[in-house]
Design a protein around this nucleic acid. Sequence first.
DNA 1: CAATATGAGTGGTTAAACAGAACATCTGCA
DNA 2: TGCAGATGTTCTGTTTAACCACTCATATTG
Lengths: 189, 189
Amino acid sequence: MLFMNDARGHDDEPCRGLHNDLGWALGTVFRTYAKAVRMAFADLPGGPRGYQVLTAAGSGLAGTQLTLAAWLGVDRTVMTYLLDDLEKAGVIERQPDPADRRARRIVLTPSGRDLLGALNRRLDEVEERVLVALEPVERATFRDLTARLASHFAEPSTDACVEVAQAEAELPPERPRRRRRAPARPTSR
Amino acid sequence: MLFMNDARGHDDEPCRGLHNDLGWALGTVFRTYAKAVRMAFADLPGGPRGYQVLTAAGSGLAGTQLTLAAWLGVDRTVMTYLLDDLEKAGVIERQPDPADRRARRIVLTPSGRDLLGALNRRLDEVEERVLVALEPVERATFRDLTARLASHFAEPSTDACVEVAQAEAELPPERPRRRRRAPARPTSR
DNA sequence: CAATATGAGTGGTTAAACAGAACATCTGCA
DNA sequence: TGCAGATGTTCTGTTTAACCACTCATATTG
C-alpha cells in the first residue's frame, strides 16, 4: 500500500513530493476528466454543465433554478445564460411552476431526451478512457467512494459546509490579492 | 454496492439522476476540497497553488518553471506572478540554474521550509475534515486510487494526453461560444 | 556561425465569476 | 386584509483570472 499514512510523515519533514499530495492528485484527475468531457461535449451549448442540467432535468428532480445552480456549484446568474442556450438549442424548456409563479420548472423536450441518451453513450466511452489506469473492480470502488464523499457534502442534512467552514474561523487574516506586478521593467539580469 | 454498473443502465434510459454521475461527484468533491484548502491557505500568497509550489520546491524535484507549471496545470505566464509573490514573501528563491542560464531553479528558503511544515500540519486537519465521510481504510483507498489515476496522467511515458485527445479527433465541430444575451429586454411577462 | 528551439517575462485581450439591484411573487403575521 | 420580509429570476456592471502573441536571452543543432 502506497499512501496509507494518513498523517503523511513527520511534521519536520517537509520534503514529500507532490505524488503524496491528495490535492495535486485530485486536481490532476479532475482537470483531465473535465478536459476530456469538455471535448466530448463541445457541441453541446453548455458543455459538461449543460449535460448535467440535462441529466437533472431528465431525472425530474430538478427543483428551482436556484437549487439546481447550487447543486451544480455555479452562480445563479450563470444558470440563466446556461438555460438560455439550452432552451435556444431546443433540448429543454422553462415551464412555469403551477405552485409558484416565480419559479420555473426545467423539463426535457423530446429531442433533449434523445440527445441525453446519445450523450450518455459518449460519456461512457470517455470515462472508460479516463479510468483506464484502474482495474474494473477499482473503478467501481473509485466511483463508489467519490459518490459517497460528494453525497455527504451535497446533503443539506449533514450540512457539510459548516464543517468545512470551521477552517474559516481559525484563519480570518486578510489576503491582499494584488495582481499585475508593478510596471517596472528592469530588463537587466 | 451502489454504482457498480460501469455501463450505467441502458441507453434508452436517460433518467439516472446526478448521484450516479461521476462528473458531478468528482466536481463536487474537488470543489469542496479546493474551497476548504483555499480557506486554510488564505494567508499564503498563492493559496493552494502556492503550497504546491512549496511542496515541489521542498522535494527538490522542481525542474524548470515551465515543467512546474505543466505539472500544476497552470499557464506558464501565471507561474511568473505566482513565483513573484512567493519570492516577495521570502519563502522561495529563484536561483540561476548553473547548467542552463535561461532557466531558474526554485528552492525553498529556511523560512519557507518552516512554513511548509506548518502548512502540512494544517492540511492534515483539512483533509481529515473533507474525508470524514469515509472510514479510515477507505480514505487510504481513495488516496491510493486517486494518486494512481493522477500519476498515470502525469507520467509522460504513458502520454495519457494522447489517449484523452483521441476524443478530440472524433468531434472536431466548432463551438460558437457566445456570451451576453442580446440586449433585448421584453420585461413583459 | 547561422538557424532554430526553448525558458522566462511582458502587455493586452477576453471570457468567466461575482456582487448588486430591479422586479415579481410568495409567506408569515398582526 | 394589508404589510413586511423572504425568495426566484433576470439584468447590469465590475473584478478576477486564463489565454495569446510578442520580446529577450540563451542552448542546441547542423
